[in-house]
């Protein structure tokens, strides 16, 4: 199962990068970035998965004594959890800049912004 999820994550990264590089519209590029970041998160969670084990939360089903043999690696999950929240902040920032650029120039086409190009 980890293989399937990891392959899906890699495919999503490729699709997202393709979408972000070939489109000229800024909103479409941001959508590509979002899909690529979802793929990265999926790959990182899939690396931590182990067959036949369960979530790293101890309760009646998983007593403390069995923890070492029954739970999966909790560290990638902690990393991905923070990465998702930061991803929303980054997306909001990109969208705010997009809106501001649209107000300034009246277009969303990124090839129209040539001030810093040389």
């Amino acid at each position: 199962m980890a293989d399937i999820a990891m392959a899906t994550g890699f495919i999503l990264i490729l699709i997202g990068i393709f979408g972000a590089l070939t489109n000229r519209n800024m909103l479409r590029m941001i959508v590509g970035f979002v899909i690529a970041s979802t793929g990265v998160n999926l790959v990182m969670v899939a690396v931590g998965y182990m067959r036949g084990r369960t979530a790293p939360i101890l309760d009646d089903a998983v007593p403390v004594a069995d923890a070492v043999t029954r739970i999966i690696d909790p560290l990638p999950q902690a990393l991905v959890l923070t990465a998702i929240v930061i991803g929303l902040g980054v997306t909001a920032l990109m969208l705010a800049f997009t809106y501001r650029l649209f107000v300034t120039k009246g277009t969303l086409d990124i090839s129209k912004f040539r001030e810093l190009k040389w």
């Binding site: 790293p56 939360i57 739970i71 959890l81």
Partner: peptide
């Protein structure tokens, strides 16, 4: 009980 919480 939640190890992810403990790590974070």
């Amino acid at each position: 009980a939640n190890i992810v919480t403990a790590i974070i």
